[in-house]
């Protein structure tokens, strides 16, 4: 084969060098944290992205935990809470952060977990420890639209093509909303309600961020999110128009749990980390960086979270049956043609 002329060699080298330089920069800038402690010695914590991100609660909590216990934590990103269990199948972790009530039954049936007793703690489960929670609520901008007073009010003409909700097939809050409606109204009447909701729907988002993005952009007037969402806009954007609509009938809550799989390698440290999330120090970080309510009520006193409206929390009585029939219910959802 003929040798390459020098100009071409130069360009090939330039391509290789840019890749090499970028890699070197990456390794250099990854900092000592990446390699200072051997991977085997670190506590592996699997969590969803917004926990792991640098502006999320994970890194600060990990740093405080290391200060307190000397145990280094390696945070692993599972992207979405719904993928936590899938990633856990592939990668062993010592701690799993971010399972919600809808995922707990599957988590328990899929594998064994170390019991984490937490006597007297709200939403305690016996196997998993709750670390934060948030009532599902519709968020609106004050002065832009009169907020709904309950689920039925969403059918009102003033919400024509104004509501952004998540698709339950792709998103946790979407599934929560579907179950909320079906639990509250019964399955058949619930689907009738959803059919009637069609004119009000602006967007069925593929994820929370899609739905909330459409709302934030001003395209939709109302978005299904959490009661706590306005706090972000109050504190970070100094925009107090954002409010959560309070439903007299109550709101279901999403509770986030931490668990320790039976297959843990650093089990004692894992349990220590799980319990650390319930300490006021960690609870404060979780609240302000995850924009969710702390399990310890006293933590929110004197903060913007303390100014959120009080809402009645409803338990989904038929949750177990709904979870069992999930696939059939999702098929019916698809047939609704929303």
């Amino acid at each position: 084969m003929a040798p390459l002329p020098p100009t071409r060699l130069f360009w090939l080298a330039a391509l290789g060098a840019s890749a090499g330089f970028a890699l070197a920069a990456y390794v250099f800038l990854s900092g000592p944290g990446e390699d200072a402690v051997g991977a085997g010695e670190r506590l592996k914590v699997l969590a969803y992205s917004s926990f792991v991100n640098s502006w999320g609660p994970g890194p600060e909590i990990a740093a405080r935990f290391a200060e307190r216990t000397g145990v280094q934590v390696e945070l692993r990103d599972a992207e979405d809470a719904g993928l936590l269990l899938r990633k856990l199948e592939l990668f062993p972790a010592d701690v799993v952060v971010g399972l919600d009530q809808l995922l707990l039954p599957e988590a328990k049936s899929a594998r064994a977990w170390k019991p984490l007793e937490a006597g007297g703690v709200r939403f305690a489960d016996g196997t998993f420890l709750p670390f934060d929670w948030g009532p599902l609520a519709f968020i609106y901008r004050d002065g832009e639209i009169k907020p709904p007073s309950d689920l039925d009010d969403l059918l009102d003409d003033r919400f024509e093509s104004a509501v952004a909700i998540q698709d339950p097939r792709a998103s946790s809050p979407g599934l929560q909303f579907l179950f909320w409606v079906l639990d509250r109204k019964g399955v058949d009447a619930g689907f009738e309600f959803l059919r009637a909701l069609k004119p009000s729907i602006h967007t069925l988002g593929s994820s929370w961020s899609t739905t909330y993005g459409v709302f934030q952009d001003g395209q939709a007037g109302l978005a299904l999110s959490y009661l706590t969402s306005p706090v972000y806009h109050w504190t970070h954007e100094n925009d107090r128009r954002y409010r959560a609509a309070v439903f007299a009938e109550g709101h279901p809550a999403q509770v986030e749990y931490v668990g320790v799989p039976e297959t843990c390698r650093k089990c004692a440290e894992a349990e220590l980390f799980a319990r650390f999330l319930l300490e006021p120090e960690a609870q404060r970080i979780l609240m302000t960086k995850n924009f969710m309510l702390p399990i310890l009520d006293e933590v929110r006193e004197g903060t913007e979270f303390g100014r959120l409206p009080a809402v009645r929390i409803v338990e989904l009585a038929s949750l177990e049956a709904l979870l069992r029939d999930r696939e059939a219910l999702l098929r019916r959802w698809r047939e609704l043609g929303l």
């Binding site: 719904g82 993928l83 792709a170 929303l338």
Partner: peptide, 17 residues
Amino acid sequence: GSRATTVEVLIYEQIRV
């Protein structure tokens, strides 16, 4: 909307849900 199920949505649904 909800009827617009594509193959990719179905795959994601099977993995995730």
